[in-house]
Design a protein around this nucleic acid. Structure first.
Lengths: 329, 329
DNA sequence: GCATTGAATGTAATCGAATTCTGACCATTT
DNA sequence: AAATGGTCAGAATTCGATTACATTCAATGC
């Protein structure tokens, strides 16, 4: 194991100088710097990260806590976070919580043990409802989920606006009786519900809303019961990609034609929404950007712990496809 | 910062005893153990991981190197690896290489610097072709990609067999002129090609194969040119989920009916393959299991570095759906 | 010519736990 | 009563870097 004193000996300087060169401090003369770099290369010296972390009390690590990395939204966010962290010479520790508050707590403990510089967190409803940054020894940036009034950095979609515009789109295409399936378990789902309600109210239309747990199977069941009722809604709106999936499955079991019998629109521009027949109208989230902004915000927060908290609200993009085509009157 | 000597003082024992209790060594009396555990709880003592890692020379970390975590196959593998690592009190460092040998090299360097106990790696073709375990200071388990004769632990799908059975399925449903689009860049794609060829040969059928780069756009283009030629193949087989996606897109641009005009089958049981019309016949890979077995193999290798290398070959499951229905003769 | 400055560099303390060693203490065995 | 052995306190050392502090030496000011 070649260590810093070997490099120092080889270069004919002190260990302090080697350390300074490697840390990029400006208090080293050019000849010394050259000698050190040469010795490092000749010996193929690699600093011991454990020793460095112990002494410098910096872990060069950040945490990412999500419910499930298999959710395409989080997959994309994670890729963005990994990319940015890597380019800042930082490591990422990833945790899956499955929306379980206990796992959430143990992940946060893990982060404390690892002495991460900060954490990007998508909290469960339960954690969000009692969330306070003061409970943690490291800065946290929330992603995707946030509740008005919480004093925390966050990067979010403008859920209200996105749902409002999606509803407007349906209404302007002639759909009046619109059923809305929303994820009742998350703040995000409820915010989208509010946007939907507001849009309906602006047209003096009555709402028909159904809260569902955020699971494909449950959404599927709920959609089935709506599709079997009379009168059939003219359109159906899903507050998430998962729910949209459940609805799509349900529609395939019926003889209903989309959009002639019933129009469909939802959230998350996943690859399959473009491939099904008819293709689905969705709100696309800027997922990679959300991840990138989250880590950006986190790094700024680490750099200046005292500054005021900020919420970054990004806009969704309405992608109109066949499933919500204009109603023939 | 509460540290081990505070715990020792509180419990009225020596630091050595605290260390022994925490390490679970059997050379401690029950009363001592109790006193220590109590003091740990009272003080909420958390060992400093950097100090522990420096002294014990164990990082409790393993690496996972894949081309892109957004590939659903790797997403699922990564979830399995995270789960298993977590339950073994280990961390995972994830790296995306984008199939770029330079990034691959820098990821492997990173793993060395982090002193990981081992790495799970899905190598690019280039790395695989010159792969030798002796080049690395830590054990490596290959996933998804492997070439006969390489002395390395690996967890794989039986690509030859899966492609053979998929081809058999098409042939037994009356399809004779079958076009095969395969990923020419990866060992996996070429192995599936061999399985396809063998199945065709066993029926004395001529093959029509097309190597494509592993990108949706390229697969799309290649599929278009095949669909425009005469005579039209009776079926088309894709060697990966990505290529299947490209083909599906191309089919939507034509007026061709599936499976009446042309049947389709491919790899990877992604959610959308069940949702498109008609639903697609695929080979499902046991992805979560592949990840789980990979880390199992890695942990065994870490425990006994000397033992013989093993390749674990898992079977794909043929899921027959509408897209490959029997040809009417 | 001597004190003063300050940039460059060296020396040694330090980070916090793991581990080794010595010696004390007690209980059991012979 | 001496010998043996198990348990553990306490002190010292180690892991390999970072960094506070000390030192050197040339340049500058008066």
């Amino acid at each position: 194991m070649v260590q810093i004193k070997d490099v120092a000996k080889r270069a004919g300087v002190s260990v302090a100088s080697v350390s300074r060169v490697l840390a990029g401090l400006p208090v080293v003369s050019e000849p010394t710097r050259q000698k050190v770099l040469e010795a490092v290369k000749e010996l193929d010296y690699r600093p011991d990260l454990a020793a460095r972390r112990l002494r410098s009390r910096r872990s060069d690590t950040i945490g990412l806590i999500v419910s499930d990395i298999r959710n395409p939204f989080f997959t994309e966010v994670s890729r963005a976070v990994e990319d940015m962290a890597f380019s800042h010479q930082m490591r990422v520790i990833l945790c899956n919580t499955d929306e379980d508050p206990e796992k959430e707590a143990s992940c946060l403990e893990l982060m404390r043990d690892e002495k991460v510089h900060g954490v990007i967190l998508s909290p469960s409803s339960k954690l969000l409802s009692r969330y306070s940054p003061a409970d943690y020894s490291f800065p946290i940036v929330l992603v995707d989920r946030y509740e008005r009034g919480i004093k925390a950095d966050a990067v979010l979609l403008d859920n209200f606006d996105a749902a409002y515009r999606l509803t407007e789109h349906l209404v302007s295409n002639g759909h009046r009786r619109i059923a809305c399936l929303y994820g009742s378990a998350s703040a995000t789902g409820r915010q989208r519900l509010e946007g939907h309600k507001a849009a309906m109210a602006s047209h003096q239309l009555p709402v028909q809303v159904h809260g569902v747990p955020p699971m494909v199977h449950e959404a599927h069941e709920a959609a089935m019961s709506i599709l079997n009722q009379k009168p059939l809604p003219q359109a159906i709106l899903a507050s998430s990609g998962l729910i949209l999936l459940g609805i799509t499955e349900a529609l395939r079991e019926t003889k209903l034609r989309v959009p002639e019998d019933i129009a469909v629109a939802g959230f998350d521009n996943l690859p399959w929404t473009r491939l099904v027949e008819p293709s689905l109208t969705v709100i696309a989230q800027p997922t990679y950007e959300i991840g990138r902004e989250a880590i950006e915000l986190l790094l700024q927060r680490i750099a200046s712990p005292g500054s005021a908290v900020r919420q970054l609200v990004l806009q969704g993009e309405l992608i109109a496809r066949s499933s919500s085509a204009a109603r023939i009157v």
